[in-house]
Every structure is written in C-alpha cells, then in structure tokens.
C-alpha cells in the first residue's frame, strides 16, 4: 500500500508520519510537497501535524485553501482513505471535509502529554484492529484542539456513528470529549491525538500503529485479490 504524506510549509510531523509508515509499518510512503504532488498515484493520503503556514489567521485555514486540497477533496470523494492528524485535522475542518471547527484549548495553553482515548467506533477502515470501547494511549500536542460543533451537528455525528475516538479526561474542552471523527462516508478521519507518535513502545506507546494496520488490512482486503 502506498501512502502520500502531504507536506505544507510549516508541517512538522511529516517525517514522523513517514517514519511510522515506512519503518514501523513497512509500507511504501512518499513525502509529497504541496506544490508538486499528484495524489492520484497513492492509495491513502496523510495530512500531518505541525503549524502549516505558521497557523497564522486560524490553524489550518491557509493550507485548507491551497491547491493540493482540491486534489485531496477529489480523492476523498472517490473513497480514498484520508487521515488528518492534529494540524491535519484542523485543515480537514477548515476545508469542509469534516464538520465543526477548532477553538483554543479551554485552559488557553499548549499541552503535550499522553492521553487515554476510548475507541468509540471500531467499524471504520481506520479502527478495525481495535476493540469497541477499548482504551488506548496516544499523545496529544496542541494549543487549539478544543473541538466545537453545534448541537445539530453533534446529534448527526452521533446518529451516523461518526465519532471514532473520545477522550477519557477531556483535556481541552472538546464538545462531547470528541478526539476524532470520520465523514459520513467513513473514509476521511480527523483526530487531534497523534497515532504516529504512538507507534513504538520505546517512545511511550505502540497503540497507534494499529490504526495504520487497520488501514492496510482493509485496503488489502478490498484491493488485492490474490494474496
């Protein structure tokens, strides 16, 4: 399976994502500079964390209107898996691929530490390797991770089973303690916690690698006939 890690000016978890896919997951991956890539050539698109365009104006807002996001939207519409982590999630929200918006953390400070998450939906292509309701350790590292949506949107997310991860101890004030959501079609996942930073036990947790393994497994089942 071939992953594209989209690199915006100011992305800073791009190499971490690349490392997790290449070295830990042992799948193919390319770092794709926002101006030069053709995303059609890839099986999955990863939008990494960081501070794209300095997070000036609003986190992810400038990256959301960049040309490569038109490609991301087209690929997403065709059902290709798209994963946005941290700043990548913010970009997905700003571009309208996922509903809602990000506000500054309730305590107004950047925070970085391990958080306990609950797998709220293990039936997405990103989470089949987890048990429903299982708790996992993922680090968070953000200043604006306070997920906001209005009641109507929240009800819709719940009705469609779009809430994939929730925080056990809501650290940032997110609506419904939401840590990650998918779109209605289930192929675009945005989440604030970092699965790529939880991909090896030596750096604190290996719980995140199963997210990538789920993707690979589901993709293989759908695309590779003779294995």
């Amino acid at each position: 399976m071939k992953f594209a890690v989209v690199v915006f000016p100011g992305s800073n978890c791009d190499r971490d994502m690349y490392h997790a896919v290449r070295e830990v997951l042992q799948e193919e991956a390319d770092l794709v500079w926002h101006e030069s890539g053709n995303l059609q050539d890839y099986d999955a698109i990863l939008l990494p964390g960081g501070f794209s365009y300095g997070d000036y104006l609003r986190s992810g807002a400038v990256a959301a209107v960049s040309d490569i996001m038109d490609q991301v939207k087209r690929q997403a519409a065709q059902g290709k898996p798209v994963l946005g982590v941290c700043n990548g999630f913010q970009v997905l929200l700003e571009s309208g691929l996922l509903p809602g918006a990000m506000l500054p953390n309730e305590k107004l400070a950047f925070m970085c530490h391990q958080e306990t998450l609950k797998v709220a939906n293990n039936r997405t292509m990103f989470t089949t390797e987890y048990n429903q309701g299982e708790t996992v350790q993922f680090p968070i590292a953000h200043g604006e991770g306070n997920y906001y949506c209005d009641d109507k949107t929240k009800a819709k997310l719940e009705a469609n089973d779009q809430i994939v991860f929730t925080y056990q101890n809501n650290p940032n004030g997110s609506t419904g303690a939401i840590a990650g959501i998918v779109n209605e079609q289930g192929n675009v996942l945005g989440m604030m916690p970092h699965p790529e930073r939880a991909s090896e036990a030596i750096i604190g947790s290996a719980d995140g690698i199963r997210l990538f393994q789920s993707l690979v497994k589901n993709w293989r089942e759908a695309h590779v006939v003779n294995v």
């Binding site: 104006l57 609003r58 807002a61 400038v62 209107v65 929200l93 700003e94 509903p99 809602g100 918006a101 506000l103 906001y148 949506c149």
Partner: peptide, 9 residues
Amino acid sequence: TKLLANPVI
C-alpha cells in the same frame, strides 16, 4: 467566507 473568517465559529 472563503478564508478570513470561519463561519462555523
């Protein structure tokens, strides 16, 4: 509407 403000918030 395109960039300067986020209509959600």
